[in-house]
Amino acid sequence: MKKLVVGSREFSSRLLVGTGKYKDFQETQDAIVASGAEVVTVAIRRTNIGQNKGEPNLLDFLNPEEFIILPNTAGCYSVDDAVRTCNLARELLDGHNLVKLEVLGDEKTLFPNMTQTLDAAKILVEDNFEVMVYCTDDPILCKELDDIGCVSIMPLAAPIGSGLGITNPYNIEIILENSNKPVIVDAGVGTASDATIAMELGCDGVLMNTAIAEAKNPVLMASAMKKAIESGREAFLAGRMKKRLYASKSSPEDGVIK
């Protein structure tokens, strides 16, 4: 399958996965390997003061030379905090400039604050970051983020961690029609069919965390999601049949025994 090109990078998998909410780092690693994802999001947080010697670190389980680490700005509610977090992430990852920008507006919905998201995106793009941006599914704002120079537009399908699926496929279609950049559905997917629907609409990829991590068997769900993404992509490329209201025979009319 054709690779997904995001900014200066190429991804062989169209499934991007988060690393939160797993039981431990081993389960995180097992699920990610089963998902086939190449791009893996991480959060940036203060280290414990008085950390135990040799305490395991997430990046010991996800080698930055094997995976494309995508640091996020989760938990940031202002332009300033989001930009600071991106700068820390770039230093932490030896100059790696790909980031997932999210500036949140509200704790209950975790919807993005879009005015602050636009401002932060401008600052980061100017500072040579490649910005993949979590945003609302508003086609006008998505176009603005595209024009600012974000490398991927990532509208939510439903609130983060909700598992409600693709709640507004019509907006996603309009965003896809308007966008020059890869559109990756970020957040809201609950199960494999949701991921397939996003891909059948023509999305370039799907980013998910909770749908895999909160499954009863995360490793099996990761494998299901891998197939769902591939199926949806192939179905989109194949081009679906037209819907019709009435039946259309599949077997020949002639030669039926009487």
Binding site: G18, A43, L58, P71, L207
Partner: peptide
Amino acid sequence: VEIVIAVGGG
């Protein structure tokens, strides 16, 4: 002083 590391996140 802020010292940060990467942790699990989505």
